[in-house]
């Protein structure tokens, strides 16, 4: 079981290595002459105005929350997608009921304007 995944770990290790290597290369060879202007946040050459991490629109949270919910629903669909042939009609009905409930949430979110931007 675990052997099956071994190549994945190898490639993961390699990927990490590559990523770190690139960063290290840049750090070793790149010159370092920081000045105050250079290390201040970039704002098209203007003097930075206000804090960098301002409160952002609540929309982003909404999107995140909606994503989590629907993503989980997708998780439920995944195994079903593999086995739905064996489950036949009853399984199909169950999934349709499941998706209908999901769609209620979707319609609700739509109607409430959660999907609108600005």
């Amino acid at each position: 079981m675990i052997e099956h995944y071994l190549p994945l770990f190898v490639i993961l290790g390699l990927a990490v290595f590559v990523g770190v290597l690139v960063v290290v290369l840049g750090t070793i060879f790149g010159p370092k002459r920081p000045t105050e202007r250079k290390s201040s946040p970039y704002e098209s050459g203007m003097v930075p105005y206000g804090p960098g991490r301002r409160r952002m629109s609540v929309r982003y949270y909404l999107v995140a929350v909606l994503f989590i919910l629907f993503d989980i629903e997708v998780i439920f669909v995944l195994p079903w997608a593999v086995t739905f042939r064996d489950l036949g009609m009853p399984g199909l009905w169950l999934m349709i009921v499941f998706l209908l409930v999901l769609e209620v949430a979707y319609v609700y979110a739509w109607k409430k304007g959660a999907l609108e931007w600005e």
Binding site: V58, V65, I72
Partner: peptide, 24 residues
């Protein structure tokens, strides 16, 4: 585990919403 994940997701949704609300 599937059920737990679902529940956890729902909790995340509710919890984040509450936190955003209170933060605002």
């Amino acid at each position: 585990v599937f059920f737990v994940m679902t529940v956890a997701a729902a909790e995340v949704a509710v919890g984040l919403a509450l936190m955003v609300a209170i933060f605002r």
